[in-house]
Amino acid sequence: MKKGYKNWGPPLLLISPTIIVLGIFVYGLIGANISVSLSNRNSLVPATEFVGLDNYIALFGEERFIHSLQNLGIFTLFFIGGTMIFGFLWAWMLDKGVTAEGVFRSVFLFPMAISFVASGVVWRWLLNSAEGDRASGLNRVFENLGLDFLQNSWWNDPTWGMAAIALPAIWQLAGYVMALFLSGFRGIPEELREAARMDGATEWKLYRYVIFPQLSPVALSALIIVGHMSLKVFDLIMAITKSIYQTEVPATYLWVALTSNDYAKSATIATILLLFVAVVIVPYLIYTARAEKRQG
């Protein structure tokens, strides 16, 4: 019986550097962050006492934080909706068969290679909200095309402004979602479609009962990936508008709190963001773990 030490020792030894580094730099720092969020370290003065959830209660009582959550909500809605719709449409059209599919695939996928900051600088100009004589970017294009009625204030709109910020994000990531869906389409065996057609399924029924169920794991992955990116959005907003009230989301608010030395508040926002992302990701991890078990 060579069970025990010799059995679990070497594997543990192999992964221990990872465990230690992750333990310190990920989980240790998450712990440190949470402990700051529970302290009264609201300035450069070191923390003196444990204040429990006071920082969280104060934050949710702030009109400003609620506003940043609303902004995030609108952004996420349009970002996820836009990427899923365009990603699916493009993948569907490519799957239907087009000439030069590789060219289209690359064209749709290329924006993803650009960093949010770089594209943000360009979109800052494209989404310039000046109209009329001083118009630039998209508003100027509309004016030149005689489509003046399409000119609008983009992200400057008090209510739906965040939807305009979602435009560049959709432009960048719809191609990625398309690639996911396309691989999903390609993963469906032709025999399934043929069998369905043999059984007399209409095109709609074919999609509804054969294709969509096969695509749902892909759609879920896409949703999770885009969703968690959306919750963390920071660089795009900083590049387009800098940190101003109108386009404030929790991540940019965190940065403002940090640069004004309110460590407890920024740690609180960071913890809340982590929880949001966890709400999205943890069920997904559980789901995939179960699915693997079933298959295994």
Partner: peptide, 18 residues
């Protein structure tokens, strides 16, 4: 102070929009 002027800045930014 930095925190105070940050709060004022946010209130003024809000007014600029609404």
């Amino acid at each position: 102070s930095i925190a105070w002027s940050g709060d004022i800045s946010s209130a003024i930014g809000k007014f600029g929009a609404d």
